[in-house]
C-alpha cells in the first residue's frame, strides 16, 4: 500500500507553505507561458527571463494542489541561473523520475529511476509515482516550462 508520507514529504509541504520564486516578470521582455490541468482546474503561469542562453530569472503564479505547487517551487529553485541546456536536461531527468514502472505499482522493488543524487530536493517528489493520478500534478510545471522554451524557440547551444 502506498503510504501518504511517501507523497507528502516534509520538504514538499515546506515548499507548498512557503513557495519560492512566486511573482511575475514584465512580459515582454520575459517569456510568459500558461499551463493548465483541465481535470483539477489547476493553473500555472511561468515567467522566464533568458539572457545569453542562461535562465537568469524565473517567477511563478497561479494556483494548484500541494504537489503541483511544491513541484513548481522546487523546479524554479533548481533551474534558476542554469544554462538552457542544463534546464532541458533537468526537465528530462524529472520526466524520467515521473515515469511509471510496473514494478513500482506492484510494490515489488524499486524502479530504475534517474540518478537521485543529481536531483537534490526534487528527489523528494519520487513518492508521487506511487500515486499515479497525482503525476500530472507534479509534471504540470515542468511541461509548462518545456512548452515555454519550445514556444519561444529557445535553443540550448547543445541542441542546435
Amino acid at each position: 500500500m502506498a503510504n501518504l508520507d511517501d507523497l507528502y514529504r516534509e520538504i514538499i509541504l515546506d515548499h507548498y507553505r512557503t513557495p519560492r520564486n512566486r511573482g511575475e516578470l514584465s512580459s515582454p521582455p520575459a517569456i510568459r507561458t500558461e499551463g493548465f490541468n483541465p481535470l483539477c482546474g489547476d493553473e500555472l503561469v511561468i515567467y522566464l527571463d533568458i539572457q545569453d542562453d542562461v535562465l537568469v530569472d524565473i517567477k511563478l503564479s497561479g494556483h494548484g494542489c500541494s504537489i503541483s505547487q511544491a513541484s513548481s517551487s522546487m523546479m524554479s529553485a533548481a533551474v534558476k541561473g542554469k544554462t538552457i541546456d542544463e534546464v532541458r536536461a533537468a526537465i528530462e531527468r524529472f520526466k524520467q523520475l515521473m515515469t511509471v514502472h510496473e514494478t513500482t505499482l506492484d510494490g515489488n522493488g524499486e524502479a530504475p529511476v534517474a540518478d537521485l543524487r543529481t536531483m537534490g530536493e526534487l528527489a523528494a517528489l519520487q513518492g508521487v509515482v506511487k500515486f499515479p493520478v497525482r503525476i500530472k500534478c507534479a509534471t504540470l510545471a515542468w511541461n509548462t516550462l518545456s512548452q515555454g522554451l519550445d514556444d519561444y524557440g529557445v535553443q540550448g547551444t547543445g541542441s542546435k
Partner: peptide, 19 residues
C-alpha cells in the same frame, strides 16, 4: 487544495470528488 483533501480522505477509505 481539494486534491490534497481528497488524497488524505482516501487514506481513510473516504471517496469524494475533487475538481
Amino acid at each position: 487544495h481539494p486534491h490534497d483533501v481528497a488524497q488524505v480522505l482516501d487514506q481513510f477509505g473516504v471517496c469524494v470528488r475533487p475538481g
